[in-house]
Design a binder for these strands. Structure first.
Lengths: 143, 143
DNA sequence: AACACTTGCATAGCGCGCTATGCAATACCA
DNA sequence: TGGTATTGCATAGCGCGCTATGCAAGTGTT
């Protein structure tokens, strides 16, 4: 393995994210969920009836990405979209009962994945690692 | 933003990796490279004339992923594949002159991206962050 | 030599990122 | 009020992950 790659934050970030995605995917697939759908659900479980643009801002993905993810979620029976009464461009996003019912199990699955990943980190190490990731994210977003 | 998401290593890893990918992509696009291609080149710049399976092991991606990336690299004139003389199933992978010539610039671009990302981390913090990522990767790979 | 097993790779199909583009509805402003 | 700018969303096209599958060429066994 090339020295540069072994010591490159970018490569390690990519590798780590892929492993998280595969692990989470395996755990939530039985619930009928995919990773990106789960992230959207985390927002909608807090509050639904929201605009697409709102979710775009919350998850920091491109609008087109969100549009496609929402289309798959509608196809899979996780959300419904109803025309907004105040803005005819907008279709507000509501959870289906199905989506509400998988919440506890899905969150537990994600927690299990995080637990495997962070392994035997102490609480201090965990918070430090999360802090560092948030810092790095901030650095790149600011660019 | 949901509390769970804000404190989830998996979500932060995904977000961070996306920002790395976009940033690197922007920097190496003028060289005619895409991120996954660059990762493969890092291996081939060390030594080419290798088998696909060798690169698969080095980068820890699925064989099908590598096959597709190599197909794009061949299409883009970065690599050539020549039949192995000892194993007729295998097509050994060689760099083109084009690929050799962009090495320095591409590596500099990646270093620039890493520098932006790690921002004002001290050397100690950088090594600690990389160590932690390697540890997390190890935890998930072992599963 | 015949058989099964393994290895090396390609292909299909899909999820989920991205950029670029377009359109309709709304908001704003002269 | 009419024209322009902005907003909300959809679509096309592509990169790059993944799983599943298939096939040809090696390897090993009996």
């Amino acid at each position: 393995m090339s020295d540069f790659r072994r010591n490159s934050a970018g490569y390690l970030a990519n590798h780590m994210a892929r492993l998280f995605a595969v692990g989470l995917s395996r755990r939530i697939q039985p619930l009928g969920l995919a990773p990106a759908q789960f992230m959207v659900l985390l927002e909608l479980w807090e509050e639904d009836g929201r605009m697409q643009a709102d979710l775009v801002a919350a998850l920091d993905v491109e609008q087109a990405t969100m549009a496609n993810t929402l289309a798959r979620m509608e196809r899979d029976g996780l959300i419904e979209r109803r025309a907004s009464e105040t803005d005819r461009r907008s279709r507000l996003i509501y959870l289906t009962d199905t989506a509400r019912q998988v919440r506890a199990e899905a969150v537990a699955a994600a927690q299990a994945q995080n637990a495997v990943a962070l392994g035997r980190f102490t609480e201090e190490e965990k918070t430090q690692f999360l802090d560092m990731m948030r810092w790095v994210i901030g650095n790149m977003r600011r660019e």
